[in-house]
């Protein structure tokens, strides 16, 4: 953009100053007045420039705040406030890379609300939403370390990511997650499993994340463990442990 329109006054100050300089020296009797006038203009414009910068900063600050808010919104599940699937994929990939660097243990838990369709059919979708929110809050409250998190995987499925957690700790944590949901004691009259809302959990851990370890293998193991927890009667956690050799091979860092 050409500044000549907006900055006409600034350019005029320069033009006049240049004219004064080019005029015959030593300065004539009117020169003092000219310089005073120039100085007044310059002061005025300098003040204005300061205000413009302050205004610009305020506007930018507003945009920054909005940007942060939008980033939060785009990474959160609207209903439960947990990380959404997009955020899960990002954070999971980050934690996985960190685990590779540290050659640490890594664990995942897939969590599924038992007979959730029946819950919705019995109590309605509004109650279903409340149930999802309560379960999400109970799961999130159970995790304690900052690197651990739980995300809404989709529908009534959640995933807990537990970096640096070896298998023994994982089973303990999976049981805590299960117990936390059971302790909510949300009535579920049509559940064949219990009179209240329960979850099944499939936990999988990798003893040590090697450079060529494959995250999707770990995800599949957690999925398979969840399937077994369901097959064994639900409201329980089933764990699988992978040794590093079992979890190597090509593959991308996404779960499915």
């Amino acid at each position: 953009m050409s500044g000549s329109g907006l900055f006409a006054r600034e350019e005029e100050v320069i033009r006049r100053a240049e004219e004064l300089l080019a005029a015959a020296l030593p300065p004539g009797p009117g020169a003092g007045e000219e310089f005073t006038s120039l100085l007044a203009d310059y002061r005025k414009l300098l003040n204005q420039a300061r205000r413009l910068v302050r205004i610009s900063d305020m506007m930018q600050e507003d945009l920054n705040r909005l940007n942060t808010k939008l980033a939060d919104l785009s990474s959160q599940d609207g209903l439960t406030g947990l990380a959404n699937r997009r955020r899960l994929d990002e954070r999971l990939a980050d934690e996985w890379r960190r685990a590779i660097r540290g050659r640490e243990a890594f664990s995942l838990v897939m969590i599924d609300i038992d007979h959730f369709k029946r819950f919705n059919d019995t109590y309605g979708h509004a109650a279903g939403d409340e149930c999802l929110k309560a379960v999400a809050a109970a799961l999130a409250a159970t995790l304690q370390r900052p690197c651990e998190f739980v995300a809404r995987y989709g529908g009534e499925e959640f995933m807990a990511v537990l970096p640096e957690t070896p298998h023994a700790g994982l089973l303990l944590m999976a049981e805590r997650l299960r117990a936390a949901v059971e302790a909510l004691d949300i009535p579920h009259a049509t559940s064949p499993t219990a009179g209240h809302v329960t979850v099944s959990l499939g936990a999988a851990s990798l003893v040590r994340v090697e450079r060529d370890a494959n995250l999707s293998t770990l995800c599949q193991a957690a999925d398979q463990a969840l399937y077994e927890a369901k097959a064994q009667g639900r409201n329980r956690a089933v764990g699988a442990v992978l040794d590093p050799e079992a979890a190597t091979g090509p593959g991308s860092c996404t779960c499915g």
Binding site: L6, F7, A8, R9, R51, L52, I55, M59
Partner: peptide, 15 residues
């Protein structure tokens, strides 16, 4: 809401 160039234009307007 206005960008920096517009705030300069407003300054000129008020001047």
């Amino acid at each position: 809401y206005f960008n920096s160039s517009s705030s300069k234009a407003l300054m000129n307007l008020f001047d």
